[in-house]
Design a protein around this nucleic acid. Structure first.
Lengths: 259, 259
DNA sequence: CGTTAACTTGATAGCATTCAACTAGCGTGG
DNA sequence: CCACGCTAGTTGAATGCTATCAAGTTAACG
């Protein structure tokens, strides 16, 4: 894939476009490799990029959009807010993820998206995505597949919140994030960035920040994981997997990806 | 659409193929109408149909499949089971739904699917779906859109289980099912079939059957809804919507669909 | 009319919430 | 340079929503 980038006209080999290849393209081609023309077609999309500060709103709940947004650097999350002010975080996002692909066909995302850390994002016009998919079946399949994996992760979260207790719930979330970080090419050997507060973890797992705090202490006390300064350190991967009842199948990652 | 069916060669106008048009095609073309050739292409898919009894396994968790399965009659649900035996129902399905579309690209569904009632299902070979999508961009978009809506509903369930109490959770589920039943062309005017036990409702909402029972009594006592013999009667739609904090946006239904 | 699944009801228990206060870290500005 | 203020994290006590346990009732069905 890096070869593809090197072969691009030099005026396109800008920083963020290289980034587009190493995140967005990397992820789309992870399962079924894209052909050379498909890669080039994707890299020539009229993408505009933007740097955003941490804790910045990327898309408001229900907002109409003309472009989908892909993360090139940094972390983000999707959320929904209830009338009483309570929030549910629906997913966390890493570089390579298209955070609101659904807006391409639905017009708007029915959730909000915000950054966790300073981030670099790329905007992909809906029309350009649809055109690229119509021209290249491989591109269409790659996007569709991403959509399925995204849905699969959401179902796992539903299972997590519905059926696991606080301890298993947090362990599971950390297992998932470890593997996905590894697949995204960030983090290594049981240590990765995850710039969330305990309040965020609570909003993601449907627990209060207070209870997250106590449970995190127990996870650390049991020698499984610790979180400090927005970084997760996994001390006992097998133990964490067992504590969370974690089975990576639902992530649909290549077998070569390890924590 | 019914016109399309009438124009088919008479040897194809079998019972279940007519059914395919009035459920599957109806749903796929609900948002953006499919062209005549697209409809005919879909109706000429090599579909095989099968009648199943209530409470029959349609696909086991993780099972490899060569075909996707669409509901033509009856109700079904997706679920996941945990090691300790507890189950989470991930979604309920009505006629027209493709219950395991994701298996088309992922090879297997990471959840199980079973019928709630006697059902008629149609099997769509993965290869045929992919071929039809490659030939007709409109078909590709219709399937992709279905995938987004399905994911949107799952996110709403995550929000439901994560943030709403038992009362609101059940109210919300019933609102959703009422609208979707109406969109599927079954049920009318606040009365529709929903052949679930209270145990099922508990597995869907992450509550125990006992608590579902008490909460259902309260919903009936408040004059909002009642369930009897696998049928839901809505007595106060506005009240139910308010109780569930229900906002239909996430279902992405045409405005013409009403409860 | 016997058997089983679904539903109902009451009492008790527990995981997580809520409320409240306190500590630590960090950037800002006087 | 340190006070100030704000956010994140921590700890303790009390409350509560829902689970669990147990038993009884109704409904469905052969």
């Amino acid at each position: 894939m890096s070869r593809t980038v090197k072969n691009l006209p030099s005026d396109q080999r800008t920083d963020w476009r290289f980034n587009l290849a190493s995140t967005f393209l990397r992820k789309l081609s992870m399962h079924a490799p894209l052909t050379r023309p498909e890669c080039e077609r994707l890299l020539s999309l009229p993408v505009r990029s933007q740097r955003l500060a941490a804790r910045t709103l990327l898309a408001a709940e229900g907002e109409q959009r003309q472009m989908a947004c892909t993360l090139l650097e940094g972390h983000a999350y999707r959320y929904r807010t209830l009338a009483d002010g309570s929030r549910q975080i629906l997913s966390f996002h890493l570089p390579g993820d298209v955070v609101d692909l659904g807006s391409t066909l639905l017009g708007s995302a029915d959730y909000g998206v915000a950054t966790l850390s300073p981030a670099l994002v790329g905007y992909l016009p809906h029309a350009a995505i649809i055109a690229a998919m119509a021209e290249h079946p491989g591109i269409a399949r790659a996007f569709w597949r991403e959509t399925f994996v995204d849905a699969s992760i959401t179902r796992e979260w539903l299972l997590n919140v519905g059926r696991r207790d606080a301890f298993a719930r947090l362990a599971h979330l950390l297992c998932e994030t470890a593997l996905r970080s590894s697949a995204a090419g960030i983090g290594h050997a049981g240590r990765f960035a995850f710039p969330v507060t305990q309040t965020d973890l609570g909003e993601a797992t449907a627990l209060t920040a207070v209870h997250v705090n106590r449970t995190l202490q127990r996870l650390r006390g049991d020698g499984l994981v610790s979180i400090q300064g927005g970084r997760v350190s996994i001390h006992d991967w097998d133990g964490l997997v067992q504590a969370g009842g974690f089975d990576r199948t639902y992530l649909h990652l290549p077998a070569t990806i390890a924590a």
